[in-house]
Design a protein around this nucleic acid. Sequence first.
DNA 1: CGCTGCTTTGAACAACTTCAACTTCTGTGG
DNA 2: CCACAGAAGTTGAAGTTGTTCAAAGCAGCG
Lengths: 253, 253
Amino acid sequence: MGNEKRQIIDLSQVKAACQSCSLQELCLPYGIGPEDLAALDQIVKRKRPLSRGAHVYRTGDPFRSVYAVRSGAVKTYAVTDEGYEHVTGFHLPGELLGLDAIIRGEHTCSARALDTTSLCEIPFDQLESLAGQIRGLQRQLLRLMSQEIQQDEELLLLLGKKTAEERLATFLLSLSKRYSNLGYSAMEFNLSMSRNDIANYLGLAVETVSRLFTRFQDQGLLEVQNRYIRLHEPRALRLLAGGQHGSDDAARA
Amino acid sequence: MGNEKRQIIDLSQVKAACQSCSLQELCLPYGIGPEDLAALDQIVKRKRPLSRGAHVYRTGDPFRSVYAVRSGAVKTYAVTDEGYEHVTGFHLPGELLGLDAIIRGEHTCSARALDTTSLCEIPFDQLESLAGQIRGLQRQLLRLMSQEIQQDEELLLLLGKKTAEERLATFLLSLSKRYSNLGYSAMEFNLSMSRNDIANYLGLAVETVSRLFTRFQDQGLLEVQNRYIRLHEPRALRLLAGGQHGSDDAARA
DNA sequence: CGCTGCTTTGAACAACTTCAACTTCTGTGG
DNA sequence: CCACAGAAGTTGAAGTTGTTCAAAGCAGCG
């Protein structure tokens, strides 16, 4: 299913190639030489922006491509049998989407834009065969998948062991760090997701999240105004997030 | 990329090779032709059995290999700063271990045998380069990683949204299914992990798990005697596991 | 046997949820 | 541009689920 029918394309499109993309270091191109990058560029389809609420894919859609976020934000969520939503992740620029679908051949969760969002679509069969040719690409693909596993494991820890307070603190710090990696401020940012999404993601009730925001603000840890967040005491937040319990059922020989 | 160099190989080795391994279908060799399988066999090191409690690797160890379980069982767990243990998974025969370490270059969790356990060690750099030559191997490696992401996401749902009852039911059914895939009985099996490990893994207190086992038995769903489990009503368990809540904050357009 | 560690059971307690009411925000149409 | 309706967010009070603490029952092993 090679598609070779792109002809006249405006120059702005060309400009937006991987080679000049500011997310290179985070995304698939990382560690790939210039000439190979051109080959990758050939298979990447830069899509027109999705507007807020639009779906990238839905549960049950056949798996054909993975997607990289270029700008905006995407949430992924599973829908249970009862029509009940579970948010599995938020994806900022440079992050890949859809890697969980490889094994089943169809998407097991849905992905939708939280904001106006631009994506790159990378047809998976082409990516796979290119990865077979470009050593660095294979490597980076494996690395990114490994990273996702790693992050899921951290989330598992969060959901399995952390208190509500620790969860929200961890979440905010994670966002802060990711924004900072993207070159934005680590101290202030706008949440692209609703309280509901946050609560759902963190395994909490909306009310709890709301109360925690209020509490954090009262304690002078941060300032919150609707979706705007400004961290005042990231250090203190980090302490909260760390989780100094008093737990004792530690490792055993 | 054809590799055509298989010659005389000692027979005892061949016996224990991937080619004759009963786990072929679940493990890395899946979907690989016989001649390529021989190449894979060359890099797989079949290790002598680990005794119960022995470590496969520990947090902080440099990442050099991934491991496949051949027999026995392994648990992976992270240790937090406070020396506090968090069980991230149980691994039965045919399952791969250590894929989360690729990105960091060192292990971020520890793995230890729950029983006498045999493993195959696969040096990752060799696996990676072989995957670049054998299309099917690359494919299976990606599939297995995707599967792990997928499974972690299910676990996320479990920890984020399910009640204690649902968690234990889900856990038991998962074990049942995995044993059944291995050719063992789906209806009765012996747990290789302690109540503590189960509780830890499921994000519950040991006491809760213990009470649930008692309750399930009282309800006639199963029979439990120390680590022996016999499922009587897998159907009913499945209902419990499914999670018919009454939740209402469903998806939104 | 008699530890020692694992498991079970009971009762009090805490964290978070649920329910309910109210406020604030957003965006649409007059 | 304002008013209004619906959505999103906040706050309080009551209710649950699961935790924590405490103690006793078992199982395996030197």
